[in-house]
Simulated scan of single mutants.
Amino acid sequence: MKNVIIIGCVFLLIGCKTKTVNGKQIGKSVEPTEMNTADEAQKNKAYELGKRVLMTCNDIKFKPFTQSEATDKVIAKSTPENIKKICVKYSLKYGLFKDLEFVEMVPNKTDNTNVFRFKALFEYTKANKEMRVTMNSENKASAISTKDWKDEFE
């Protein structure tokens, strides 16, 4: 009986440390109080970039990303036309964008990136959206996406 409990505890510890999402090894999430200064700076940059995309929905003026802010892939996909499509849908469904609320940082050990999760706050209380900004080791946004909000990282 003792061995079963010990083995169960070992599996529990292993299961809590890392998990695989879409074939990538993801570490446990980092709370805001556990972040170092480099992570804090990356979080602030991720916040500014994510907010810039959603603020476009309010004022219809999108300032394109520069080479120092985002990777070529993100710059290519964040065209004014693509952002306008998203904004039209979100404005009708959720109202005006208000702000982003930081929830957690999830380090991705496979490709040395950090995924910053923000809860997007809109005018209508029924809005339940998430903004994810993935920052690479060069402190550039390598992915920006919105999803329906889920409490657990997937």
Rank of each mutant, 00 (worst) to 15 (best):
V10C: 11
T33V: 05
S145F: 11
L54M: 08
I75E: 03
S142C: 11
K24Q: 09
P64F: 00
A141F: 05
M131Q: 08
I14N: 05
N3F: 08
L121I: 11
K129F: 07
V4M: 03
T18S: 09
G8K: 13
M1A: 14
K51M: 06
E101K: 13
S29N: 11
F97W: 05
A127L: 15
L121G: 13
P80N: 10
K84P: 00
A41I: 14
I60L: 10
V88Q: 13
V10A: 15
E154N: 15
T37R: 15
M1P: 00
I14Q: 04
A38E: 08
K63D: 00
K77P: 03
G23W: 05
T134C: 02
F122Y: 07
L13M: 14
K45T: 04
S145Q: 05
K93D: 13
T113K: 06
N114D: 12
R132G: 04
K109H: 03
G50Y: 00
I26H: 09
T37K: 12
I26P: 06
N112K: 10
E48L: 14
A120D: 01
N128T: 06
G8F: 12
A143P: 02
D39Q: 14
P107T: 04
G27I: 01
S137R: 07
F102A: 11
I5N: 02
E123A: 09
C9G: 14
E69T: 00
V21H: 00
P80A: 13
I5F: 09
G23S: 13
E31V: 10
Y124L: 12
E48P: 01
C9V: 15
P64H: 07
L100N: 10
Y94I: 05
N136K: 06
